[in-house]
Design a protein around this nucleic acid. Structure first.
Lengths: 135, 135
DNA sequence: CTAACACATGAACAAGTATTCATATATAGA
DNA sequence: TCTATATATGAATACTTGTTCATGTGTTAG
């Protein structure tokens, strides 16, 4: 919300042809400038893709969707989502590892919930953006 | 690789116990209410995960990061990202298919750019949220 | 104690995917 | 025309990942 990177839109092209492409690949952009400040470093891109990859699963999204509404235990999640309990447990483990959910134990049950409001906000943001994108 | 489960925070009271869990799984939530309005349908979760999956790749993110700044041709992207040209072309193809980028041909070159502002907005939103999330 | 239950976890298998290599198409220049 | 360049694409390979099955751990009830 604070930073506004790469605001410069992509709507300028035309005029083409003569200001470049004369030599066998005489780079169309200044090589020294290939790494702008806004450009993702490899490391950051890796962290981002890793995180998005964790989100990019139908059942994990459905689990998060459930937990966005209220905390639930493993068995009920399995029933509600019509999934194998083991599968749910495995998915919850990965969600736990990346700190998207936390849990509390109560007797034989383990109740899971979204870790914090950031997760909920991000989840909602994705849903909204994707409603537009895939409309 | 970060194998550091969030196993803390678990410190919750133990009391409870009697207001539920009497029967062998007498669901903790009303079965009739398992599908709330906010709950993702399977179809929507699938579309979302598919879309997120396309984004969940280090090199695709780096390509988008580049194109967020300005349009670029395949060869320059390959050089800037130190990737095989073929790999870049393949990735651009998938980005094209899901309409995240568009292109214009100019002589032997093909210049790619982000498809529209939604893509840029979404990309920025992710970067911001992940800055918080992975900070 | 013993049995039933709730959940976790490791291993194995299946399905998906990114990269590379070889090749194809298309354009520009000689 | 022929050659070099720029990009695209199919196939093969290697890698990742989600699910299932079997089993292990911990808890409650009888």
């Amino acid at each position: 919300m604070s930073d506004n990177p790469a605001e410069k839109l992509v709507t300028e092209f035309e005029n083409g042809e003569d200001f470049c492409c004369d030599l066998p690949h005489a780079h169309h952009s200044d090589p020294a400038k290939l790494s702008q400040p806004e450009t993702l470093t490899v490391e950051k891109a890796q962290r981002m893709s890793e995180f998005l990859g964790f989100l990019a699963d139908t059942n994990r999204l459905r689990i998060l969707s459930m937990l966005a509404d209220k905390e639930m235990c493993v068995g009920d999640l399995a029933i509600a989502l019509e999934m194998n309990e083991s599968a749910v447990s495995h998915q919850l483990r990965t969600l736990r590892v990346i700190r998207l959910v936390s849990f509390r134990k109560q007797g034989r049950h383990v109740f899971y919930r979204l870790q914090d409001h950031h997760v909920l906000d991000f989840y909602k943001a994705i849903v909204e953006h994707l409603d537009e994108a895939t409309a």
